[in-house]
């Protein structure tokens, strides 16, 4: 910080020849960086900070449809929170979401790592083919993903049932994959995994190419087999990348809203098919219980911040390295 360059209060720092050059350059426009960040800060305040403030306040108030139309919102302090936390169903949704998040994120990571190792093992032409296929899936907009998958799993003329029924002794024609809640979430997890594996696979592959051949050769000379090389050399080297990817998957899979909403559009509706995103939507926009929905959103925010805390720590640790 070199905003104050000279001790003489009346001297203009720009024209003070005794000031060293470097210092003068920075002192010339001490306010400039603030002006430069101002528009971005303003955008964040309007679009995020203000709504966040609203959310914090109204999670502690009675705010329903009547308040929406002008009635004063009465302060409840933590009543909304205690209502939620003593509500068995809210806990069901929280735990369901956490299990869904963990299962989907782990499946994505496992498959992603396997595909990255596969890319390393194949000749270039096969690798390029696999990468292109992954990119195609990655590039699909969520809504388009969902319309295609909705047809693929359609009970009447979906390809999935058709192909499964080709197996000997299996007749899946007419099977509705979205009817059972467990099956509904399995399908949702499958689609999200399909869509998120490309990012993981390509990132892990990029990390794998950074592992130097010399280290692997040295391990080979010392008598390490392929499995030992993978577990004791490669994995520890790419561990930081894996940790960051896993945390990102946790964060992203906790906040699935669009996929669940779009599956519900075409299939069953109701509490049993809700994760946190659709649950909050139902409370707020659906039932107009904005105070309660705000409290629920704050709880989701806290859960996310716990996971992100680890992520930011990892990121900063990487940065310091």
């Amino acid at each position: 910080m070199s905003i104050v360059v000279t001790t003489k209060p009346d001297a203009d720092p720009d024209f003070d020849p005794s000031t060293p050059k470097r210092k003068r350059k920075k002192a010339r426009s001490p306010k400039l960086p603030y002006w430069l960040t101002l528009p971005a800060v303003a955008a964040l305040v309007v679009g995020l900070a203000y709504p966040l403030g609203w959310q914090v306040l109204n999670s502690m108030r009675e705010y329903g449809l009547r308040q929406q139309f002008g009635e004063d919102a009465t302060w409840l302090w933590f009543a909304n929170y205690t209502d939620l936390l003593t509500d068995g169903f809210f806990w069901t949704v929280v735990i369901r979401s956490l299990v869904f998040m963990a299962a989907t994120a782990l499946a994505t990571m496992g498959l992603g790592i396997l595909l990255a190792l596969l890319m390393k093992a194949t000749p270039t032409w096969a690798r390029v083919m696999l990468q292109s296929a992954l990119l195609l899936a990655w590039a699909m907009p969520i809504v388009a993903q969902m319309t295609v998958w909705n047809w693929l799993i359609d009970s009447r003329n979906g390809v999935l049932n058709y192909l499964l029924s080709k197996l000997p002794g299996v007749d899946m024609i007419g099977h509705n994959w979205l009817e059972e809640p467990l099956s509904f979430f399995f399908v949702a997890s499958l689609i999200i995994t399909w869509a998120s594996v490309p990012f993981v696979a390509i990132s892990v592959y990029a990390a794998l190419t950074q592992v130097s051949e010399e280290v692997l050769e040295a391990a080979q000379l010392d008598g390490a087999n392929a499995r030992q090389k993978l577990v004791h050399i490669i994995m520890p080297i790419i561990r930081p990348v894996l940790v960051i990817l896993l945390l990102l998957q946790f964060i992203w899979d906790l906040r699935v809203y669009a996929q669940i909403q779009l599956l519900q559009d075409l299939g069953p509706k109701g509490d049993d098919y809700d994760l946190l995103g659709t649950y909050i939507f139902g409370l707020g926009i659906g039932q107009g219980r904005f105070g309660l929905a705000a409290a629920a959103a704050m709880i989701v925010l806290l859960i996310t911040l716990c996971v992100s805390g680890f992520y930011v720590r990892e990121l900063l640790r990487e940065d310091a390295r």
Binding site: L48, P51, Q55, L276, I280
Partner: peptide, 15 residues
């Protein structure tokens, strides 16, 4: 960047 839109959209809708 970590803020989930899904935990904010009620408030953003209100605003």
């Amino acid at each position: 960047q970590m803020l989930p839109a899904e935990a904010m959209f009620i408030a953003q809708y209100q605003m």
